[in-house]
């Protein structure tokens, strides 16, 4: 059962939203926020991805089961990133790991 239609105004609205988000990510890159920059840029990309998926690829018109697959895909990427990032963040070995930056390879 189709619950929503992708209409032309919605397409134009999404297009403008994508443009605004693109300029937003560019603008934030100029602020020099350091490590937070990457997190913000990726978050904006995720939002843009969902706009493209749901509006331009008409996922919003689909049954929940079909939408679930896309949501699950996103969760699997989140899983990959979470457990991979958890690894270097929790590497507390004894004796301490030598810092490669302090002792660069010849």
């Amino acid at each position: 059962m189709i619950s929503a239609h992708v209409t032309t105004p919605k397409l134009i609205g999404s297009w403008i939203a994508l443009l605004v988000l693109t300029f937003l990510s560019f603008g934030i890159s100029l602020l020099g926020l350091g490590e937070a920059e990457l997190f913000i840029a990726l978050s904006i990309s995720v939002v843009k991805t969902f706009v493209v998926l749901f509006i331009f690829m008409h996922l919003v018109e689909q049954r929940f089961a079909n939408r679930l697959i896309v949501i699950l895909t996103f969760l699997f990427i989140a899983l990959l990133v979470a457990l991979t990032v958890a690894d270097p963040l929790t590497r507390k070995t004894f004796p301490p790991r030598p810092d490669p930056a302090a002792n660069p390879y010849p």
Binding site: F76, L79, L83, A86, D87, P88, L89, T90, R91, K92, T93
Partner: peptide
């Protein structure tokens, strides 16, 4: 099957936390 990949890396320098989880 998607939650177990780290068990290939127990001695590759994987953190103890991740190794426990995997």
């Amino acid at each position: 099957g998607f939650f177990t990949w780290g068990h290939h890396m127990f001695v590759a320098g994987l953190s103890e936390f991740d190794a426990g989880v995997f």
